[in-house]
Design a protein around this nucleic acid. Sequence first.
DNA 1: GTACGGAGAGGTAAG
DNA 2: CTCTCCGTAC
Length: 849
Amino acid sequence: MTDFDESPHVSNPKSGGIAARAIAARGRQAPNYLDGLNPEQRAAVETTEGPVLVLAGAGTGKTRVLTTRIAHILATGRAWPSQILAVTFTNKAAREMKARIGLLVGGEVEGMPWLGTFHSIGVKILRKHAELVGLKSNFTILDTDDQIRLIKQLIQAENLDDKRWPARTFANMLDGWKNKGLEPKQIPEGDSRAFAGKGRDLYAAYQERLRTLNACDFGDLLMHPIAIFRAHPDVLADYHRRFRYILVDEYQDTNTAQYLWLRLLAQRPGKDNEQAPVNICCVGDDDQSIYGWRGAEVDNILRFDKEFSTATVIRLERNYRSTGHILGAASHLIGHNEDRLGKTLFTDHPDPEDPKVEVNAGWDSEEEARAIGEAIEDLQRRENHNLNDMAILVRASFQMRTFEDRFVTMGLNYRVIGGPRFYERMEIRDTLAYFRCVCQPADDLAFERIVNTPKRGLGDATIRLLHEYARERQIPLIPAALEIVETEELKPKPRNALRRVVLDMKRWSELLPSTKHTELAEQILEESGYTEMWQNDRSAEAPGRLENLKELIRSMEEYESLPSFLEHVALVMDTEQNAEMDAVSIMTLHSAKGLEFDTVFLPGWEEGLFPHQRALDEGGRSGLEEERRLAYVGITRAKRRAKIWFVSNRRIHGLWQSTIPSRFLDELPDAHVDVMEANTSYGGYGAGGFGGYGASRWDGAAAFNEGAYRTPGWKRAQAAKASQGGGDGWSGGRTREITYESDQTSGFSGRFTADGAERQGRASRGHNQPPRRGLGLYSSAKRGGPREIEGELVAKSVAEHESAFSKGDRVFHLKFGNGTVALVDGNKLTVDFDKAGQKRVLEGFLESI
DNA sequence: GTACGGAGAGGTAAG
DNA sequence: CTCTCCGTAC
């Protein structure tokens, strides 16, 4: 608060190194940070006063505008760094902004204390004024895990059946309410009737419980500040005075609570106050609004100019990222949406030589992963591309696993972004729970988590007694435990165990001020027996978990103290992964927003997955439009190459399901799209029934034995296919000859026109099957060689195939057991299994008996 | 009180 | 398929 009311023009060497440097930089070499901005960007940077809405399409230099704008404000002496509020949605975006401002201004960035996510800024405000909402400033931030456990307790306390009323469901409702900024008394009647009529009561009870725990959840980080601003105009006025400039990134993703929060900060009351005008600048893209499901209101961006009548609206449409084909494909796709402000991206450098957007088909998700893996190796080896320049963007996180499995076998470096996160691992949470107990004796949830981890003989019975004891005296569990161990309430064995652990905690707490936090952390892990627990664990994961614990301690070095580390952990759930490593990124489309890659792979474009069924069911048309925006986001992440995939079979909930291509594929424009044909091992399937199997034999024995064909998934796929009745709409093996001919004449280029693809897509949809595929060409960088040759070989191998089995033979199958061959069709057999019934299986999986 | 196994349920996206 | 819950055996 030192520079709170100082004029930024006053020279003050101690405050805001950035501003000083920015001003110095301006002196030295004019404002060269403005160089290279186009007129719209420059307007967005230089219109510093009054409300500004920047509609920035994908790749139009949005971040550049934001960061340059901040640099400009600093360099022209309009404000100190501490007088600028800059909000982002993700920690990553915040980090990037800091780094880029640093580059503009030259040197390290310090002193932008109010640049961060909504949540991190919210927590900062709340720590200052916690007592105004009945919290202490050292409150804990609950993670989802704690939240669920707490809700479960409340549901049980209300005598509700927690099967019928799952805590998870309530947590989602809670989230919804808080996203809308609703307090218990404000929730809609319908919602309050939920949970057997106890919806509202549970919400109120939950908040009450949080207060006694001195805790809050993510939603409260916005709700509490809003409540404080409303109830305490003096506090709000302080912030009004402080924040001379407000900047908001990804404005299209703000939810109602965030909107209310911003509005309170931005709209200054009274006519004759002499405060600074409302200098708020919101940057967003309605076409990239993809968080409707978690409460984002596109409406916020649409009503911006109503809210701020003097608003300047600036559109950025000149795209610097992608090729003309990528922009063309993305624009055409998003043009199918009705609810949009309508922007048209364009590039100054369209080049017909640029690769078109590719659409690829595959047999199942495992093949998809394999083919994408090969495409990546191709680019890497043949074109010398860095893995860092490539990304796989999936719709749902379960898709990631297939890729991980495949890349591990291939030995291909990858990194998962936003996947199962470091801080969500069991051992990390356990450890953090210990730390929380030490820093905050009122943290009952943390205490419950680890009282009996490692096992100390403190089971349900003991904990229930402790709970009762604590409840009667209205004190948290740890102090209660300290007392109860001095009484006769507990049997000697649990009493001693409890005494030991709780005295340990007390001792660690006392060491807190005097001991270096990393040393204390190690001491806690050692003395609690937690490390030992994993050392004695014989399971395969144990060594990894111990590694993670070491990593945790290492990462603590950067923080001053245990409490400050804990706060970091609560808010920043993503850890920096070793960025030096060259690796392909795997992430969801949602977490890809704001990023760009030279090459982007977009797998899983199938109805039900993308667009996601649930989005369609729950969101109707607007749900579909949001999915389409997600597709738009995906394509526009690519600078040069976008490669879309769909497959015919995908495992969902462990069951193989046949799928049909996404409608979005039909919405891509012919002119910018190439439909690739069967650049994979399976491709022959469409041609020769199970010709894919035949093709795979050219993959060499090793690949066959280790590869996907041996996986249960492949077998299941075959089985599922077979049980569906085999040949069906695909014409199975019966169309063999047709496709060979046609493809051979086309020179095995494996390429249809985009027009052809459209026809394929539609035709296939008609009979609920994937497009019929031409000859599958097996090609791979590893083997190289002319495709033609392989193509012929494949063709021959299938065409001339003679089964080693004939009708009536007794056979054995690894999965289905013994059976009798009922029908032979090339290398594809129908077998009556003694136990499993009739199945269609590949000859390769059968043994003679 | 704990360890194990079987049954059953559930599974978009993120801070 | 994977996770959680619950009953049973120790």
